[in-house]
Design a protein around this nucleic acid. Structure first.
Lengths: 202, 202, 202, 202
DNA sequence: AATGAATGAGTTTTCATTCAT
DNA sequence: CATGAATGAAAACTCATTCAT
């Protein structure tokens, strides 16, 4: 029934991003999104199953494109250490480029109901797989410790990136995310400890 | 006006935890919480300003107690490395001890409205301060790298712990959180890199 | 946002009159009005801002139409004495024609909250202006005493008409209001005193 | 059950006047009146049947005293014309003396529910009887027209006084009620018409 | 395909009154 | 007599979704 493509499909998703970013999740009514997209309320239901579907599709479209790009870029980088660096950089670039999208995916959609959260979680799995791949590469290459637990490590990387972006938004984007890429990368690879810095820096 | 103490105050908070954990945030009506607490609907408003206040108080009581305990424990540990270890351990213990509370604070309350989220955020600030303290201690002691950015490091620690707990709940608590303390601590202190492990372990 | 015109707009107002007249102001729930108007509860909010708006609009529509008619009729009458007669007659005719409306505007809506009362007061100002006009005309014509205080006189006229109608309703409309027009008119013009009746009647 | 006398009985009534005058009828909760009267909520129910009873008693006590005084004063005046003058004067004096009481009896209590309004109506009957008496006296004396309809005339007098006081309160008591006694009395006795003023004034 | 008017289910909060102490 | 903690019924309003045009 739902069309899922076309000019209006995209217009509705873009309108949803703008409306949610401006008014917040709890004030983003279907009618407001429709007005912003310059379509009738009912038209939204020709392109989406229901409101949840709009939100999940929004996340899927925006995040799906991003993850595909990350996958491509990862393939073009040789070492896991560089892949990790690139990942952090892409993650921050992606969200810093579009503040509204950052607010929507990082803050507002997390207030959504279980159905939407479930949809979001499924989309994120692909991203977590990419992270797992980097960790596994590094272990295979021998640049990462052989005793790493991939899932624990993945949670550190994702959790840290996520918390960093959320915090940046909560502070009204008043500094540059990309300025933190180096520090984070170093933290991931070398940790907080003051051991062997000379070697590490070498 | 709102009493904020007493037997029923606590009964209502405990009931709220149980109801939200069982039915989810969006199905935790005031009347359901009242019934669970074995008080009349109106009684809730003798102890709390409104429903939001119940939720914020819930978080405040549970998390406040926990943070106070963490603060005490930190004072009794000498090295920052051990403090960090203790922190991870306490964090996981706290949430592993009470699965329902974990679900409520970690998953359900994050769907709440801006007012509640604001209240939660303020309470969490104290916890972030504790983490900052550990990082600063470590730098002063010379066991943590002198070029650490405290705020970035804090986000890594908190983001990782948070993501780890969320993931554990989403997987239906099917493994033990406490089993991951060592691995996480090592990850924080030494990082993912395979440099100088022998020295580091020495 | 609220439409304020159309078939359903009128149906809702008519339904409100019937429901309030039958059940009283304090038992005229929105859902009851909606059912009487044969629309859904929510439909009321497509035509009115809120319940108060329904009540104020009711008064405005009914009283507004009446006042416009009074204004027209006044323009077609020459002498102030005849204008006054016509006013009393129109006032009583208006309320005697529709007993339910009389009950609603005269009794029930006066129990309403400050917001509604304020709205009603503003609408009534136009009516008071008409009365002022008559008094001023009469003074200009020389048929009314030159030392009349317009505002005091207006209050006598309005207060008397109002009390008369209220009393008539409280006595279950068991006599005819229009039968009192002459007596009231004479009372206004000549007063209670027994001076010069012969001349006056001449 | 209800005591209906005593220090606290009076304290509660006085408190009710103050609370209703300050906060308005719709915000005059029993608990607020109790607090103002410095008694417990439950104590009110030792002296009154229910909240309605408090309001009716308030009106009864305050208005009853006033009406008794009016009755006494009327007995001491000979002519109906002077009685009428005295009545207007007493009416205005009574309400001008206590602004809070005026607001409560004239504005706020009229928003009350049917039960209270019924109680008030019954108390007012005595007052209307006094007015009737004056009109009848005047007719008997021959100073009022013999064709007066007592009930119509009574409504003119009461309606006018009532409207005058209400209007004065709505205008924030910004002029003196007593300044209008002469004008009103003249209006009642001689009417608005400009006939025979010279004789009338003679 | 597109419209947008109409639907109606669902929930927080207040406050008069009671009654155990 | 007095207290005041506890009760629980009751109602306005929102908004996702439908469907006749």
């Amino acid at each position: 029934m739902a069309k899922r493509t076309g000019e209006k499909y995209e217009a509705i998703i873009e309108a949803a991003v703008r409306v949610i970013a401006e008014y917040g999740y709890h004030n983003a009514q279907v009618s407001k999104i429709a007005r912003e997209a310059k379509v009738a309320d009912g038209t939204i239901y020709l392109y989406f199953e229901n409101k949840d579907d709009v939100l999940i599709s929004l996340f899927s479209e925006k995040m799906g494109t991003f993850i595909s790009r990350v996958e491509e870029e990862m393939a073009q980088v040789n070492s896991a250490v560089d892949q990790l660096y690139k990942l952090i950089r892409l993650h921050f670039e992606h969200l810093e480029r579009d503040h509204k999208l950052a607010i929507v995916t990082q803050i507002e959609l997390r207030q959504s109901n279980p159905e939407v959260r479930k949809g979001i979680g499924e989309i994120l799995k692909r991203y977590l797989d990419v992270i797992d791949g980097i960790v596994e590469n590094g272990m295979r290459e021998g640049v990462f410790r052989p005793d790493l637990d991939v899932r624990i490590t993945r949670k550190m990387i994702f959790g840290t990136l996520d918390e960093t972006v959320t915090s940046w938004i909560m502070n009204d984007h008043k500094y540059r995310l990309l300025d933190q890429v180096d520090a984070l990368h170093r933290l991931f690879v070398y940790g907080m400890g003051n051991y062997h810095q000379m070697d590490a820096d070498a």
